[in-house]
Design a protein around this nucleic acid. Structure first.
Length: 278
DNA sequence: CACGAACCCTGGCTGC
DNA sequence: TGCAGCCAGGGTTCGT
């Protein structure tokens, strides 16, 4: 589910509730996520103060005092649900796996039906070198991510550009939706070889990636099924998708009669316009 | 390095 | 209505 814009939306929502809050309770209702939660998961966190929330790729990093960091990945179906004292108590749902209460009385629930997500407690020293993080590519919204950087990273890759952009080692945070949308905006065919993207094409692709991610964050992400902001509101970017999930619909970028096509690359759907992305 | 397939797990939708 | 089959925004691992 969540790609970079959805995770960033969750980060912003959680930050307003969690920053500088004391953790007063952690309840593990179901420890068997993608990696099992350790038995001391709760004990190590109660009494800590949350200092900041950051995002790296599709990971959330919750930094606490004592150089302790909670790493969260939402997988495909993970959500963080916030309940404040004003919104009242509620009955736990079947897939509410971890419940975290802070000094303000806010209760944040990690809900993840498919349990592809994970939570991991690390010390600050272990974060940068952790196996889940150390091979991640650059953040696409950083100023340092330029078309020259992208072209250089694509140059040794002899695979389809679609597959290359989904590879988190090449650039971090893109998923199936935003890769499709960025390639459409850049006018690049999804099966074009990655090492052929340079110069003008690399510039168009870089700008397309940054623009689509920025717009999606501003819209609160894309809510196709599971994504919710911590407040419970849905994102709105699904209304602005040009190609993703729109097989057969008219192309919004040109007047070709064929409409948006769907193909399968590496077992995953790709949506594109054959004319605009010739 | 690249590729596909299998796998992790559940829910929703489609078609029969 | 029930059920089988397929699909899904994430990722890893293993074999070729």
């Amino acid at each position: 589910m969540p790609e970079l814009p959805e995770v960033e939306t969750v980060r912003q929502g959680l930050a307003s509730v969690w920053e500088w809050q004391l953790i007063t309770g952690v309840l593990v209702r179901r420890p068997d996520l993608r990696r099992p939660l350790p038995s001391d998961f709760s004990a190590r966190r109660v009494g800590r103060t949350i200092e900041s929330l950051q995002r790296r790729a599709k990971y959330l990093l919750v930094r606490m005092d004592g150089r302790l960091v909670l790493l969260i990945h939402l997988g495909m179906s993970g959500r963080m649900v916030v309940r404040t004292p004003a919104s009242g108590a509620s009955v736990p749902e079947p897939h509410d796996h971890v419940v975290i209460e802070t000094g303000s009385g806010a209760v944040v629930t990690y809900r993840d039906p498919r349990r592809f997500g994970l939570m991991l407690l690390l010390t600050e020293d272990a974060v940068a070198s952790h196996s889940l993080l150390r091979n991640l590519g650059p953040e696409p919204l950083d100023d340092a991510f330029t078309s020259r950087v992208l072209a250089a990273r694509l140059a040794p890759r002899r695979c389809a550009i679609k597959a290359a952009l989904l590879d988190q080692r090449l650039v971090a945070g893109l998923g199936n939706i935003y890769v499709c949308e960025a390639l459409f905006r850049a006018g690049i065919a999804p099966d074009r070889l990655a090492d052929s993207i340079k110069g003008k094409a690399a510039s168009r692709l870089t700008e397309a990636i940054k623009a689509v991610l920025t717009e999606a964050i501003q819209a609160g992400g894309t809510s196709l099924r599971d994504h919710r902001r911590p407040s419970g509101e849905i994102g709105l970017f699904q209304h602005r998708l040009a190609v993703y999930g729109r097989a057969g619909a008219p192309c919004p970028g040109c007047d070709c009669g064929e409409g948006i096509k769907r193909i399968v690359q590496g077992g995953r759907s790709t949506f594109f316009c054959a004319r605009k992305q010739g």
